[in-house]
C-alpha cells in the first residue's frame, strides 16, 4: 500500500485538483452554454415565425420505422391566440456532414413557412450557402407541402409558391439533401402535427 502511494501520489493529487478545477469551471459556465443553445434555437424559430406572439413547445410521438420516438414541435400563436404555424426539427446527411434544420409550416400543414439551419458543415463557398443565402431559403417560404419539394438546376429563384427549389450553383447535392431531409421528415411528422393542430385551438380559445 505504501509503495502504491509512493508511486502514484502525484497522479492521485492531480486527479483530485483537476477534478475540482473542471467542476468549478463547468458549473460556472454551464448556464451560459445552455443560454447560448436556447438563444440560437429561438433565433431560428423567430426567423420562421416572425409574426408569432407566443411560442409553445410540445413533445409529440412520431413514427420512426416500427416504433415511435418523441419529437419537439414549436407552435406559434398570434396575439389573438390563433396558431400561426408550427416549427419542427429535421436532420439528415448532406454533401459531407450532418445537416440539422428547423422547418416551419402553416397551421393547416399545407404550405411551408420557411427553414432555418441549425447545423451544417458543407463545403465552404458552395454548400455552406444554405446557411447564408437568403434567396435560397426564401424559396421555401410559401412552397406547398404537396407535392413533395424537388430541386431544379435553373429557374426563377424569386418564384416561391411552387414546390420547385432552384439549387445553389455548384451545390446541387446539398440542395437536394435539404429537400430530401424536409420531405422525409414531413412524411412522418405530418399526421401527429395535424392532430395537435386540431387540439391546439381549443385551449387557445379559452385563454
Amino acid at each position: 500500500m505504501r509503495n502504491f502511494l509512493k508511486l502514484s501520489w502525484l497522479v492521485l493529487l492531480c486527479a483530485f485538483v483537476f477534478g475540482l478545477l473542471l467542476a468549478t469551471v463547468y458549473t460556472s459556465w454551464q448556464p451560459r452554454i445552455e443560454a447560448n443553445r436556447i438563444a440560437k434555437l429561438n433565433r431560428g424559430i423567430r426567423s420562421i415565425l416572425a409574426d408569432a406572439d407566443s411560442i409553445r413547445a410540445d413533445t409529440l410521438q412520431v413514427a420512426a420505422g416500427e416504433v415511435t420516438e418523441p419529437a419537439v414541435v414549436y407552435a406559434g400563436f398570434s396575439t389573438a391566440g390563433e396558431p400561426v404555424g408550427f416549427v419542427f426539427h429535421a436532420e439528415g446527411t448532406g454533401f459531407q456532414d450532418r445537416i440539422e434544420l428547423l422547418v416551419g409550416v402553416d397551421p393547416a400543414f399545407e404550405r411551408y413557412r420557411g427553414i432555418a439551419v441549425l447545423f451544417a458543415a458543407e463545403t465552404p463557398g458552395f454548400g455552406d450557402a444554405i446557411r447564408d443565402s437568403a434567396i435560397f431559403k426564401s424559396q421555401f417560404v410559401g412552397a406547398p407541402v404537396d407535392p413533395p419539394l424537388s430541386v431544379i438546376k435553373a429557374g426563377d429563384r424569386t418564384k416561391t409558391d411552387d414546390p420547385e427549389i432552384v439549387s445553389i450553383t455548384g451545390a446541387t447535392i446539398t440542395s437536394v439533401s435539404v429537400t430530401t431531409i424536409i420531405n422525409r421528415r414531413v412524411e412522418t411528422i405530418r399526421t401527429p402535427v395535424q392532430e395537435m393542430a386540431r387540439g391546439a385551438k381549443a385551449p387557445a380559445e379559452g385563454t
Binding site: 508511486l7 502525484l10 497522479v11 483537476f18 473542471l22 469551471v25 463547468y26 459556465w29 451560459r32 452554454i33
Partner: peptide
C-alpha cells in the same frame, strides 16, 4: 513511467477548459 500520462492528463484538462470557454463566450 507516469510522465506521459501526466502530460496527457494536464493537457486534456486545459483543453476541456478552453473548449468550455469557447462554448460559453
Amino acid at each position: 513511467h507516469l510522465r506521459i500520462l501526466m502530460f496527457t492528463l494536464t493537457i486534456a484538462v486545459f483543453v476541456t477548459i478552453a473548449d468550455l470557454f469557447l462554448k460559453a463566450f
